[in-house]
């Protein structure tokens, strides 16, 4: 029943970059859970909750937790959209039916973000609501990854943090092993930027 040697920590080789211009940011333990506000549009709240759960679920050691708040005042991450279809996502091949962008806040002289992160969701014309829903589900996870501190894109299309160029859709349904290793590494790397007050 007993072994003579104890297990060694696993290799975590295989990550992509996460800093921006040399700056590293992740939410510190004392700021958890990170407060996400989702504008009450369609099923945006569900999409944001799914994104938060997707990221929280990859951590083994409690490095990140997020929660949805009902009021944008005091939120750490604010997600807004003009319209979000509340339909089941299309199970077919991913299409570029949506667009999202995360605005990383400015940094003050104390190396602290001055305001919350803002994620803006846009629906592209010419697609079915189900195709849009599928796109939004994947892309909201991607944008939440930026809000967690993953400021770079993965070069690998199997990763949720892959950075498509042009009109290419994100194809991963959630964080991959490489996404997991990268965000783990980020959350154990000393940050150089402080969270917003």
């Amino acid at each position: 029943m007993l072994a003579c040697s104890e297990p060694t920590p696993p290799s975590r080789a295989g990550t992509y970059g996460f800093e921006a211009g040399g700056d590293v940011f992740h939410w510190p333990a004392e700021r958890l859970p990170v407060r996400f506000y989702a504008q009450p549009t369609g099923n945006l709240r569900f999409l944001v909750q799914h994104a938060v759960d997707s990221w929280a679920g990859v951590f083994l050691y409690g490095e990140f937790r997020g929660t949805l708040v009902a009021d944008s005042t005091g939120a750490d991450v604010i997600v807004q959209a003009d319209s979000v279809p509340d339909v089941p996502p299309d199970p077919g091949a991913p299409v570029y039916a949506c667009n999202e962008v995360t605005a990383v806040p400015p940094i003050d002289t104390n190396n602290r973000f001055t305001e919350p992160f803002h994620i803006r969701v846009a629906v592209l014309p010419g697609f079915t609501p189900a195709q849009v829903a599928a796109c939004l589900r994947r892309t909201t996870i991607h944008e939440a990854g930026h809000a967690l501190g993953l400021f770079q894109h993965s070069p690998d299309p199997v990763d949720i943090m892959w950075g498509p160029s042009g009109a290419a859709p994100i194809t991963a349904d959630g964080p991959s092993d490489q996404d997991r290793r990268t965000v783990e590494l980020l959350y154990h790397t000393p940050p150089t930027v402080l969270p917003p007050p």
Binding site: M1, L2, A3, E6, P7, P9, P10, S11, R12, L60
Partner: peptide, 20 residues
């Protein structure tokens, strides 16, 4: 008492054996 500890999540992470 003594036992060997590992969980499915630790195996997924890459731990290949249990810890005493």
């Amino acid at each position: 008492d003594v036992h060997r500890f590992i969980t499915p999540a630790l195996r997924s992470e890459g731990f290949t054996s249990a810890r005493t």
